[in-house]
C-alpha cells in the first residue's frame, strides 16, 4: 500500500472513530452527567464492614475495622469499631435533626462513658484518615446539589471528565473537583480535589460491587498530595436493608 493511500485510510478511520465516539456519547453537558450520576439508585439503608488503613508518608500504617449502619440516605449513622483491640467497642452515632443540624455522640468503653459531641465540622478528618466527613457524605449523597458542573472532555470509553465548582453558599472545603466518570457505571473512578487553586487530594475508586441490584464502590483510596499520606477503605459484607430499626441509632445500642 502506498504511503498516500495509507494516510488517507488512517484519516478516514480516524474520522469514523471520532463520529462513532460522538454517537456513543449519551450526555453532552456536565450537568447531564452529574444528574445521571445522582439519579443512579443507591440503597437508603445499608450495613457494611469497613476496613480503613491509614499510611503516612514515612510508611507508618494503622488499620481499623468498623461496622457501619446507615439509614435514611445517611441521615442516621452508627459506626462501631471492631479492631484493633484497644479501641474495640468504641462507637459513634450521628443523626440529622429535622432542622438539618446534626447530633453526634461517642461511646468509649474503656471510660464506660458516652459523650455528646459538637458536629458540623464536615471538612475535618474522618477518624484521622485522609477522607473528610464531607468526602464520605458526598460519596453517599452525591455532589450535584453543591456544585455546578462543566464537561471538560470525553475520553474513550466513554469516560466523562467533569469539572465541578461550588455553588454560591455551598458548605464545602474545596473550590474545584475534577471527576472521571465512566458512562457504563456512572460511578466516578477518580476525583481530584482542589483548594486555593492547588491539587489537595486525589481519590481513586478501584472496585465496585453489585449488591441487591445496586452498583456500589467497595474499594477506594484517598491520597493527600502535600503530606503524601494515603488512606484506603475496603467495604465488605454489604447488607442492603429495607429499613434498620430505630433502636440501632440510640445510646443503648452504642453501648452494647
Amino acid at each position: 500500500m502506498s504511503s498516500r493511500r495509507r494516510i488517507a485510510l488512517l484519516t478516514v478511520l480516524s474520522i469514523a472513530g471520532t463520529l462513532g465516539l460522538a454517537q456513543a456519547q449519551k450526555y453532552t453537558t456536565g450537568e447531564e452527567v452529574m444528574n445521571a450520576v445522582d439519579a443512579k439508585p443507591t440503597p437508603s439503608n445499608l450495613i457494611t464492614t469497613m476496613t480503613m488503613t491509614i499510611t503516612t508518608a514515612s510508611g507508618q500504617s494503622l488499620t481499623r475495622q468498623m461496622q457501619v449502619w446507615s439509614a435514611d440516605d445517611g441521615n442516621k449513622e452508627v459506626v462501631k469499631f471492631t479492631a484493633p483491640a484497644d479501641i474495640k467497642g468504641s462507637g459513634f452515632l450521628s443523626t440529622t435533626l429535622p432542622d438539618g443540624s446534626k447530633q453526634s455522640m461517642i461511646y468509649l468503653p474503656a471510660l464506660d462513658r458516652t459523650r455528646r459531641i459538637a458536629s458540623g465540622q464536615q471538612q475535618e478528618s474522618f477518624f484521622g484518615s485522609d477522607f473528610s466527613y464531607e468526602d464520605i457524605t458526598d460519596l453517599q449523597s452525591g455532589t450535584n446539589k453543591k456544585y455546578d458542573s462543566k464537561l471538560l472532555k470525553t475520553d474513550p470509553g466513554p469516560v466523562y471528565v467533569v469539572e465541578a465548582t461550588p455553588r454560591p453558599g455551598a458548605d464545602t472545603a474545596y473550590d474545584k473537583l475534577v471527576l472521571q466518570i465512566p458512562e457504563a457505571t456512572l460511578i466516578p473512578t477518580k476525583i481530584e480535589f482542589y483548594r486555593d487553586g492547588s491539587l489537595l487530594k486525589v481519590m481513586t475508586i478501584h472496585k465496585t460491587v453489585e449488591v441487591g441490584g445496586y452498583t456500589l464502590p467497595s474499594d477506594f483510596e484517598m491520597k493527600t498530595v502535600a503530606s503524601g499520606s494515603t488512606t484506603t477503605i475496603q467495604e465488605s459484607d454489604f447488607q442492603v436493608q429495607d429499613s434498620i430499626p430505630d433502636e440501632v441509632f440510640t445510646e443503648r445500642f452504642l453501648r452494647r
Binding site: L62, D86, L108, E124, G128, S129
Partner: peptide, 27 residues
C-alpha cells in the same frame, strides 16, 4: 492503655491526625 487509645480516637474524629503523628507513631 485502652482508654488512652480511645481518647486519641476521639481527638482524631475532628482534630488533624498530624497533631498526633508529629508526636507519636500510629502504632
Amino acid at each position: 492503655p485502652q482508654a488512652v487509645a480511645q481518647e486519641l480516637l476521639v481527638y482524631q474524629m475532628s482534630g488533624n491526625v498530624s497533631d498526633i503523628t508529629q508526636l507519636m507513631t500510629l502504632d
